[in-house]
Simulated assay, not measured.
Amino acid sequence: MDQIIEFLKHLINPEWIITHGGFYLILFIIFAETGLFVGFFLPGDSLLFVAGIYSGLLCESFFNIPFFALMLLVALAGILGNMVGYWFGRKSGPMLYRKKDTFLFRQKHLHQAHEFYEKYGGGAIFVARFLPIVRTFAPIVAGIVEMDRKKFMFYNIIGSFAWVFSLMLAGHYLDKYFPDLKNHLELIIIIIILITTLPVLIKLFFGKAKKPIGAGQVEASSQDQQQE
């Protein structure tokens, strides 16, 4: 049990993921965080930024592929993750809203993602990429409300490329201009986490309280979406 807890701690440390798990673990984490509801705690934003900083090492360790190809594969992992989340939402439907809270699942995260989707519509799939926790549940909610597949895939693809390329390129070029950036990774990661989680925290503590979403509301949302 102690070993499992220790491993979970490592999974939220981007530098450890890159130096010990390599590119394969990065692909898995991006896939899991963007489509599996158990992956909401994984460090997507900071991992991508640090991966950009270590881009040279990652490219060399993965068949010496170009940096662009590296980013492309990561973006594809994000696209596939959202597709799995969407499929899971379509299949599970209202059942998730009756599921009890567990260590890896919280009803409030699902409700927040649903409110976010209702507010921004299809664009929520794009915007959610840049919001921790919300990006995990947004594709699941899109599947639950039966969002049009073509519309979902459009926002899924452009959102994944925008998210992955912006963060990895930022880390890559900042490291070139500031070579000692690796010496301050802990501070950088903390700053990224604070910036990306700030909108979620504001919503959590200052947003208006709403009644829990029930199966009836999910079905109504589904009917509205189909009418569109």
Rank of each mutant, 00 (worst) to 15 (best):
I144N: 03
A215I: 08
L72E: 15
I188C: 00
L57I: 04
H109P: 03
F68I: 13
F68Y: 12
E33D: 14
P132K: 10
H172I: 09
I26H: 11
D148Q: 11
F178S: 07
L27C: 11
Y177I: 00
F7H: 03
F63M: 06
H114N: 10
L104Q: 07
L27Y: 10
I125L: 10
Q217L: 05
A77D: 12
L76G: 03
I17Y: 10
L169K: 04
G121D: 03
F130M: 12
G22P: 01
K182N: 00
I4L: 15
R135C: 04
E228F: 13
L57R: 02
R149S: 11
L104A: 10
V127F: 15
R149V: 14
T136N: 02
G89V: 03
G85T: 08
L181E: 10
V38S: 07
L174E: 14
L58P: 02
G52F: 12
H172Y: 15
F63A: 09
T19D: 05
K203V: 00
F67Y: 15
Q226V: 02
A77H: 08
F206C: 00
W87P: 00
G85W: 02
G21W: 01
Q217A: 08
T102H: 01
F205A: 00
F40V: 06
I79Q: 03
F154K: 15
W163E: 01
S61F: 01
H20M: 08
N13W: 06
T196N: 03
L8G: 04
Y86F: 14
I190P: 03
L73T: 09
L185G: 06
F206M: 01
F205Y: 15
K182R: 12
S222C: 03
P132Y: 12
I65E: 09
F103R: 13
R90L: 13
G159K: 14
M71I: 08
D2P: 05
Q223I: 12
M71Y: 09
L104Y: 14
P66V: 07
A209V: 12
I12N: 07
N64A: 07
R149T: 13
A69F: 07
I53D: 13
L187H: 14
K150R: 15
I30Y: 13
L167D: 02
K150I: 09
L47I: 05
I125S: 05
Q112R: 02
Q226S: 06
F154N: 09
P132I: 11
R149D: 10
Q217F: 06
I195P: 01
A220K: 10
F40M: 07
S46G: 01
I79A: 04
F49C: 05
K211W: 03
L80A: 13
A220I: 09
R129K: 07
F62C: 07
I4N: 09
L47W: 13
N82D: 11
A220W: 04
G121F: 08
F154R: 11
F105N: 00
M71N: 11
R106L: 07
K176Y: 07
G159Y: 15
G207R: 00
A215H: 10
F37L: 14
H10F: 10
E186V: 14
L194Q: 05
F40N: 08
P14L: 09
G214P: 04
L76C: 13
A113F: 03
G39Y: 07
E6C: 01
L36C: 08
A162N: 09
F7D: 00
H114A: 15
F7A: 02
